[in-house]
Nucleic acid binder design. Structure first.
Lengths: 202, 202
DNA sequence: TTTTGTTTTGACCAACTGGTCAAACTCACG
DNA sequence: CGTGAGTTTGACCAGTTGGTCAAAACAAAA
């Protein structure tokens, strides 16, 4: 009888599989990826991989779930008690940093949304919407109090998402255009300037 | 011997196929789409579809080529003789309008880039880079002359791409968060404000 | 109507896909 | 050492995929 948690081997192999799957799914999308590909990347045989996860779907679901938390965290941290402008700027900086550190997660997410969010559409219109609405409220209060400039708060948030994730999702294009310059060296300053000028009250 | 151009039927069917393929490819990506799916959407049998295009790849390539022109046009139109700030704002407005009018093309492109641009990587680092470099030059001159504020010109362009395409590529997410409000009603004003504040010289 | 080129299709194929299974192997522990 | 649970694998399967092909159906000019 197994009364203990997962074996050392189970722990290691599940991690190895998720790591490999993230690589594969994030660059080929769900349907574009094959179990064989993931198994090879993980250094396992296909049946062995399917001994640790019941199906391709299950691996993908596990990755998405894990990723959604990482994705939402920076927004959650925006503090109603802090200095408004600095809070927004800090949020933007965190988001950009995450794009740099976890580009594969960003692309996994982008792939899912692009295809109509078949697997996380529900979460978007419940959990995500709830969190965003809460922060929209906060931003609106800040604007009404004159702490930051009045702009459409939804679009403010969308703009932050799109600007920061662009560097992960469209990495190939960014690098093709910029040549050998590192986009992440100059991006933080540009984006901070942008939001400072947009949000500093007149 | 066929000395004339394409038949009336050929013209119509090729168009119908491309239209159907755009629908399918843009929502499922290349590998996620099947020839059968496209054929069904086009109202043709699979062999009949393959009578008009030699392969799945060929249809995809044809779409990408056609799309790239549409995608680059608004940037080409940015006029060195015009008023700097208004030229940039007009470019942004054109780009956003295209996102609204051709969301499928935008998603087709996003899919391709996300997967590492295997089919258009070459074009990006030649044609696209050349065009961008030319406009970067123009923007830099405008900045040095004090007509628009000094910001990193590459990131300025990336920000325009990401902000405008976001509304096409992440449409599902935007709508999930905004509920039944139409994002395209309020987006143009927000984005214009953003670039006006960013670029108006101090 | 005949003839000739164009268009459409059902039947088919080989490669690949996600997933199963029984048998073999490995390993910690008594 | 032995034994039982945990781990790994080769062989296999049914469904799907992109693509082919010969024959049939159709259109239009003579």
């Amino acid at each position: 009888m197994n009364t203990q948690g997962p074996t050392r081997i189970q722990k290691k192999n599940r991690a190895v599989i998720l790591e490999a799957a993230l690589d594969v799914f994030s660059t080929h999308g769900f349907r574009g990826s094959t179990v064989d590909q993931i198994a090879k990347e993980a250094g396992l045989s296909k049946p062995n991989l399917l001994y640790y996860f019941p199906s391709k779907e299950a691996i993908h679901a596990s990755l998405l779930e894990q990723m959604l938390d990482t994705w939402l965290d920076p927004l959650r941290e925006m503090d109603p008690e802090g200095d408004p402008l600095e809070e927004v700027l800090a949020y933007v900086a965190r988001k950009l940093e995450i794009s740099r550190t976890y580009p594969r997660e960003s692309r996994l997410f982008a792939n899912e949304i692009l295809q109509g969010a078949p697997r996380i559409g529900e979460v978007l219109s419940t959990d995500l919407k709830a969190l965003v609405d809460e922060k929209i409220d906060l931003l609106t209060r800040w604007m009404k109090a004159g702490h930051i400039a009045q702009v459409h708060p939804y679009h403010l948030i969308f703009s932050i998402w799109s600007l920061t994730q662009h560097y992960a999702d469209f990495d190939v294009q960014v690098r093709a255009v910029m040549g050998d310059q590192d986009p992440f060296q100059s991006a933080p300053e540009f984006i901070e300037t942008l939001y400072r000028r947009l949000l500093t009250p007149t």
